[in-house]
Simulated assay, not measured.
Amino acid sequence: MNSKLKNDALLVLTALIWGSAFVAQSVGMDYMGPFTFNSLRCLMGGLVLLPVIWIMGRKDPKDPAYRPDSRSIEEGQKKRGDKKILLTGGLCCGIALAAASSLQQIGLVYTSAGKAGFITALYILIVPVLGLFLGKKVGLKTWIGVGLAIIGMYFLCIKEGFFISYGDFLVMICAFIFSLHILIIDYFSPKVDGVKLSCIQFWVAGILCAVPMIISEKPTFEAVAAAWLPLLYAGVLSCGVAYTLQIIAQKNTDPTVASLILSMESVFAALAGWVLINETLSPKEIFGCVLVFTAIILAQLPQKRPA
């Protein structure tokens, strides 16, 4: 129970950081293109994790558990197998992250932030549907929570008539790929070191986004320098900290429940705008926040398992 509460708390913290980072993403787009912003923030996130991995990987030679001469051939083969799983997981996570985040950033150019937030949050419905094909059963309370969360997201994010535009279509694809990203993490995170997996995915995503950045956007040093603050926040906190917390917390968390908790990103974005930049929340938006919080609580209630 303590482990479950700890993982849920880490996922809530992840959603909080992502929600408040939306301001940084919007401001950063004033100075550079979407591929430039995503590439730099991901590379920065990977760079931040390198000293963390080095510190965590240090071993004390005086520690009796540290016996480099006692490693067997079997242990060496197991380590090589773990390394292969780690690289494969990092590559898959990085490809998914690069595709989803780029589609989201490009979609924001053509659609409103509210609609983009709502459509992206549809991964809370896509994840359990995809999970059914992978043999993951979802309880009735969780399905009710998913429904409540989607309704709450609509009240929170949609301020005008709902219609599908080019930007909305891009964000829909983004939501589907983010769902795959959550399921990929669910598969690989119990098998490998979470911090290393996170670091590899950032380097992969940063390099992939750098290719279209160089070809089509040609960023300047002046633009990067002008956007140093949103880049620093999005790179260090949103990438380096939040995505790593997501991977660590998802090791022992059902992916559907994890997606529900992470959907609070939109709620925290609205609350951050209210607290930090005095954006008012209408009764309709407050009602949406209440529905999302209710959905999260409902999904956490214990369910009777069949014998």
Rank of each mutant, 00 (worst) to 15 (best):
G206I: 06
L197C: 06
F176D: 08
D168S: 03
I184F: 08
M213Q: 11
L208F: 11
L197G: 05
Y187F: 13
I215W: 08
V171R: 00
A175F: 07
Q201L: 12
W203L: 14
I185Y: 00
L180I: 15
H181M: 04
C174D: 07
P190L: 08
E160T: 15
I214T: 10
L170V: 02
S216W: 15
I184N: 01
D186Q: 03
I182N: 00
I164H: 02
I200L: 15
F188Y: 15
F188P: 01
V171C: 05
C174A: 02
L180A: 11
L183R: 02
K159W: 07
G161Y: 12
G167H: 00
V171A: 03
I184M: 05
A210C: 13
D168Q: 01
I164P: 06
I184P: 02
L170T: 00
F202Q: 13
M172W: 08
F162K: 02
L183T: 05
M213I: 08
D193I: 00
D186P: 06
S179V: 00
Y166L: 12
C199A: 15
I177L: 12
D186R: 02
K196S: 15
L170P: 03
V192N: 05
S216L: 14
I207C: 10
C209A: 13
V211Q: 09
F176I: 13
V211D: 09
P212F: 13
V204D: 07
D193K: 01
F169K: 13
F162V: 03
C174W: 01
F202D: 08
C209F: 03
A210R: 10
H181V: 07
C199K: 10
S165P: 08
C199V: 10
A205N: 04
M172Y: 04
F178L: 11
F163P: 01
Y166E: 11
